[in-house]
Design a protein around this nucleic acid. Sequence first.
DNA 1: TGTCGTTATTCCCCAAGAAACATATCGGAT
DNA 2: ATCCGATATGTTTCTTGGGGAATAACGACA
Lengths: 134, 134
Amino acid sequence: MPTKLHATPHATRLRIRLYFSNGSMFGPGKADLLTLISETGSIAAAGRRLGMSYKRAWGLVDTMNTMFAEPLVESSRGGASHGGATVTATGERVLSLYRRLEANTRSGSAREIEGLEGLLAPVIAASTDMSDGN
Amino acid sequence: MPTKLHATPHATRLRIRLYFSNGSMFGPGKADLLTLISETGSIAAAGRRLGMSYKRAWGLVDTMNTMFAEPLVESSRGGASHGGATVTATGERVLSLYRRLEANTRSGSAREIEGLEGLLAPVIAASTDMSDGN
DNA sequence: TGTCGTTATTCCCCAAGAAACATATCGGAT
DNA sequence: ATCCGATATGTTTCTTGGGGAATAACGACA
């Protein structure tokens, strides 16, 4: 029989949100949206991929564009491309800083995370009874 | 009105939440509650200090006690002391690990945080728009 | 046996926020 | 002049997490 648990290396996910002094905040939601806008070139497509309504995605973009000194996303309507959105250099910089913060935390606190994981209740393997939701 | 820029260096607050593979999570809410239970020796008192209802505080305690292998909080009813709650050794360990994770992040990503702060829109002194999103 | 403050638990209710729906607009291409 | 797909924004409907009130149990002690 296999050794011990630890079957899951680092399935633990971190969600880090920054609350700035001016009241604005930035976290994984905006970061992921930014990432997907950069990938897809469209607010709508990015929102769809994240399972959020266009309205919500647009609202987040609007907030991001006003909370920073320069807009993170530039959008255009109509035209040959039928509109779209691109992440500005500032946007990429914000994203890069945030991702680095995330990575730093994961690597810099690996010990603490493992320590917490080790204290968790063992997963109930029961495959017969699945009425529980939690 | 260059009355000021970033007078307060570290007003930016971090909120780190861990999502474990078993579906449970731990973040600043539970950590703060744990801290105050340790201080006050009472779930109710801790909840009051945090501005949350007893029901909510108790619910968080209950979740914490079941998500870890050993309870983080032990409580008693009645008696000479009229009941109360104490944080177990495991509880203190969890708290310590989480606080260290927080501190590590703050110190280990000071550059990134400062970088993001530097990109924020300057605070407009006069009119205050208390709107906010995610 | 009654008092006391805290833990434990249920039920009802509500507002904040998300979802859903509905338009309006843009502008190059055909 | 029209089509198209995406942006932009308002209006309505729905969901849900938490608050609040109410209630019970607990147990040492006087």
